[in-house]
Amino acid sequence: MRLGARHVWLALATAPIIGLFALPILYLVTVSFKTRDDVLSGHFWPTVPILANWPGAFEAADIARFILNSVTVSVLAALLTIALALPSSYAVLRLKIGGKWLADVTLSSYMAPPIVALIPLFLLLKATGLLNTRAGLILVYGFANVPVAFWLLTPFLRRMPIEIEQAAAMDGAGPFRTLLQIVAPIIAPGIVATLLIVTVLSYNEFLFASAFTFSDATRTLPVGISLFQGDRLVNFGQMAAASLAGIAPVYLIALFLQRYLVSGLAHGGVK
C-alpha cells in the first residue's frame, strides 16, 4: 500500500509538469484544425474542425524542402561541432593547453547576443561565396555551438579516471589515438547527448537562417514558417500545421534516442 500511495503522489506531482509541457503542443494541434475566425474567437477547441489547413500549408510553402534543409543543416552542423569541441575540451582539460583562461574565454563567447556577429558573418559568407547556401549555415552553426558542446563535454571528461589514459600512454598511445580509441568510446553517452542538444539548437535557429538565406532551396523551417505571416493577415491554422510537421523530426529523434540522452546527462561517461 505504501508503494502504491507513493506512486499516486508521484503521479499527482508530475501531472502539472507534464501538462505544462504538453499544453502548448495540444493548443497548436487545435489551432491547426481551426478557421481564421475560430482562432480569433479565443476558444481552445475548434468550433467546427477543418482539415484544409494541412494541405493548404504544404501548398502555400515548400514545407517538405524546408524540413529537409533544417534536418540536413542541423545534423551536419552538429557533427562539425562535435568534431571541433571533443578534441578541444580534451586538450584543455587533460593536456592543459591554454590554461584555465582558454576554457573561460570559450564559454564567455556564447554569452554575447547573436546579433553582434550577424554583420561580420554576413560579409564573411558573401566574400567566400557561401551566402545563401546550406554549406554556409552548416559552418556558422557548427562553429557557433562549439562553446555549448565544450561546456557539455567537460563534465564527462572530468569524471573519467585519468589512470585509463595513463595506461594507454604507457602502451605507446599518443593523445589523438587515446582520445579516439579510449576516451571517446567510454564517454559515448555524453557525446550522443551533446550531439542531440546542438542538433536541436541548430534546427530551431532563426536569426542567422533568416539573414543568410534568400530562396526556398536554402531556407530552413523556422524561416519558412515565418512566411505564413503576411502584411495584414496571419494564417494561424496553416502556420500551426506547418509547425507541427516541422517539430515531428525532432520529436522522433528524441523519442528513439532518449535512452542515450537521459543516461548521458544523468550519469556521465563512467558508471
Rank of each mutant, 00 (worst) to 15 (best):
L3P: 03
I17R: 14
L20F: 14
P24Q: 03
L26P: 00
V31M: 08
D37T: 15
V39D: 02
G42D: 11
F44R: 10
W45Q: 08
P49A: 02
L51F: 15
D62N: 14
V71H: 07
L80V: 12
T81V: 07
K96S: 11
A103T: 09
A103P: 00
S108A: 11
Y110S: 14
A117D: 00
A117P: 04
L118K: 08
L118D: 02
T128K: 09
G136D: 00
N145F: 07
P147T: 09
A149D: 08
R159C: 12
R159S: 14
E163T: 15
Q166W: 12
A168F: 02
A168W: 01
A173E: 06
P175R: 07
T178Y: 13
L180K: 07
P185G: 11
P189A: 06
I197C: 04
V200F: 08
L201K: 04
F206Y: 15
A211Y: 10
F212E: 11
F212D: 09
T213Q: 09
R219Q: 15
T220I: 03
P222F: 05
S226H: 13
F228G: 02
F236P: 04
G237M: 03
A241I: 04
A242P: 01
S243H: 04
S243P: 00
S243A: 12
L255R: 00
F256M: 11
L257P: 00
Y260R: 07
Y260P: 05
L265K: 00
A266H: 05
A266K: 04
V270P: 13
